[in-house]
Nucleic acid binder design. Structure first.
Length: 429
RNA sequence: UCCAGCGUAGCUCAACCGGUAGAGCAUCCGGCUGUUAACCGGAGGGUCACAGGUUCGAGUCCUGUCGCUGGAGCCA
């Protein structure tokens, strides 16, 4: 196996050759330090004038930031080193001399960093976020895979608007106008009738003119859908999935959370059960906190923050007014003005990370909703078939991956949670 | 779309009431045997976003345009 900095401890006292990029360098006359970054970690390499070839010693001074190099040396434990190890170099080989690197070890503004996002990803913070994001996705998929879910991906190009056309990106499809997917949910419902428990995981697209720290035009969503599951069971699935994911990141990505200076005490408490309050209880809670809000209103960013802050773990709000929720959600049998829907609001002001519901499974009722919402009925015939041929109660939800990453990492802005964010009118790089 | 703030060196920022354009980092040259965003000395580097106006004189004041940032709205 190749020697990498992450596992350098196994090579103490031995010679190792590391390949990577020059993260920084320092010089003190007859001793020179090259800080090497190899993608798994960072280690300082010490060059002593009388112990390395002259060419290598010269190169240790002239090599530029982010040049790619190969460094050979003896691995040593070192108390003063942040990672605990150091390399006493015996040689340095240049692979490519980098041009002057734009992102220096000093501060930079967000505009400049976003313009250089492809290079910014190499920095310690972004590296940590990439690794945590990967762990989060793996944890979620592991949880679902281990609980009998079948991954079945849904299309990106879709023939008709899911709900209204204003938020969709139109695409020319051999002369026909189609749209980038907003959700895989409707397809998931059909798949659930085949495999009982399914999920899709992929990008979704919104053409909204949203310009906030919580919105992206292109974001990834994890959407489970389960046959014969009601709203309460749906909430249980959501809280178990989220709690498992948070605990997994705490167990496996401590170092990265530390790099991000995340207060992990706020994550330790994220265990089941999560608090569940009804929409009307939430309204009352907000009114008690002095918010001017009345039953029937939807929650804005401020309200979500207040609700999230009221608990030490994510809170689930259920039984929203049907009027402010999607057409396919089942109504409450006792009060048809309410939808069997829930949102999960993350703690610490990160807002909604999960939105789910029990789906309408009655054919007549669904036909009525499609008509009321002025949706093109022919585009939904296949969807109605799910209600025509052995209709079944079923529920599911969508989990926004980037908002979840922002919350777990403690990032202020969602743009750092995905390698190349698609922001309002910004698609470079 | 609306509101607010900001556009000065490659980067991050200063420049007081309108009076000669400045620092740190980066780059180049030199010094230092343990540095941790190393440090010390030196050098080069400017269409003060763009256009117009006021003034003896504008980076600074006024108008417009463009761009960026934050927020609102919008938002399964």
């Amino acid at each position: 196996m190749d020697t990498v900095i992450e596992r350098i401890g196994a090579s103490v006292g031995k010679e190792a050759t590391l390949s990577g990029w020059v993260y920084n360098k320092r010089s003190s006359g007859k001793v020179r330090f090259v800080i090497l970054r190899d993608g798994t970690g960072v280690i300082q390499c010490v060059f002593l004038k009388n112990q390395v070839p002259e060419a290598a010693f010269d190169l240790a001074d002239s090599v530029t930031q982010e040049s790619s190099v190969e460094i050979t040396g003896i691995v040593r434990e070192e108390k003063r080193a942040p990672g605990g190890y150091e390399l006493t170099a015996t040689n340095l080989k240049l692979i490519h001399l980098a041009e002057p690197y734009p992102i220096t070890p000093k501060e930079h503004g967000i505009e400049f960093l976003m313009e250089h996002r492809h290079l910014w990803l190499r920095s310690a913070r972004q590296h940590a976020v990439l690794r945590i994001r990967s762990e989060i996705v793996k944890a979620m998929r592991d949880y679902l895979d281990d609980n009998d879910f079948v991954l079945a991906d849904t299309p990106i190009l879709t023939p008709a608007a899911g709900e209204g056309t204003t938020t969709l990106f139109p695409v020319d499809y051999y002369g026909e106008q189609v749209y980038l997917a907003q959700t895989g949910q409707l397809y998931n419902e059909a798949i659930a009738a085949s495999v009982r428990k399914t999920y899709c995981f992929g990008p979704t697209f919104r053409a909204e003119k949203s310009k906030t720290r919580r919105h992206l035009m292109e974001f990834w969503m994890l959407e489970p859908e389960v046959a014969f599951l009601d709203l309460a069971g749906d909430m249980t699935l959501a809280e178990e999935l989220v709690a498992y994911t948070v605990q997994r990141v705490l167990a496996k990505r401590r170092a990265e959370l530390a790099t991000l200076e995340r207060d992990t005490a706020r994550l330790e408490t994220v265990k089941v059960p999560f608090p569940r309050i009804s929409y009307h209880e939430a309204i009352k809670l907000l009114q008690d906190k002095g918010k001017e809000i009345k039953p029937g209103d939807d929650f804005g960013g401020d309200e979500e923050t207040l609700l999230g802050e009221a608990f030490d773990r994510p809170v689930m709000i259920h039984h929203y007014p049907a009027a402010i929720k999607a057409f396919y959600m089942k109504r409450d049998a006792g009060d048809p003005t309410l939808a069997l829907a829930f949102d999960m609001i993350a703690s610490e002001g990160y807002g909604e990370i999960v939105g789910g519901s029990q789906r309408e499974d009655d054919l007549k009722e669904m036909q009525k909703r499609i008509e009321e919402n002025k949706l093109p009925p022919q585009a939904f015939e296949w969807y109605l078939d799910v209600r025509r041929f052995g209709s079944f109660p079923h529920s599911g939800f969508g989990l926004g991956v980037e908002r979840t990453v922002a919350w777990i990492c403690g990032l202020k802005h969602i743009r750092e949670t995905i390698p190349f964010p698609r922001m309002l009118e910004k698609v470079y790089p």
